[in-house]
């Protein structure tokens, strides 16, 4: 007689505990939307910042921009390239 009562009591305690845990977790999840929205907003904001910085970087590293800037700064095109190559020896010892 005692054993069935103990078993039933344990089962009841488990059910009640699990119900409390479920209520607790559901409650936590239901308000996590606020944090999720904040995180999504931050991700969006950083993506936009990255895209804008990438655009500036690409424009600044384009040859069109660099060439125009070089002209303004006074750089000129080299007409005669100078080649540095290995010198041939003047005399070879035997």
């Amino acid at each position: 007689m005692k054993r069935p009562i103990i078993c039933i009591s344990i089962l009841v305690i488990i059910v009640i505990s699990l119900s409390i845990v479920q209520i607790f977790i559901s409650n936590k999840l239901s308000t996590s939307g606020i944090e999720l929205a904040i995180i999504q907003f931050k991700i969006g904001k950083y993506k936009v910042e990255n895209a804008i910085l990438a655009e500036k970087l690409l424009t600044a590293s384009s040859y069109t921009y660099i060439s125009n800037k070089a002209e303004i700064e006074g750089f000129i095109e080299s007409k005669s390239p100078i080649y540095i190559s290995r010198q041939f020896p003047i005399a070879i010892g035997r």
């Binding site: 999840l29 239901s30 996590s32 939307g33 606020i34 999720l36 929205a37 999504q40």
Partner: peptide
């Protein structure tokens, strides 16, 4: 999935 306030729910 959004709650009654229109905020997203992890679901």
């Amino acid at each position: 999935i959004n709650d009654a306030m229109g905020r997203p729910i992890i679901a």
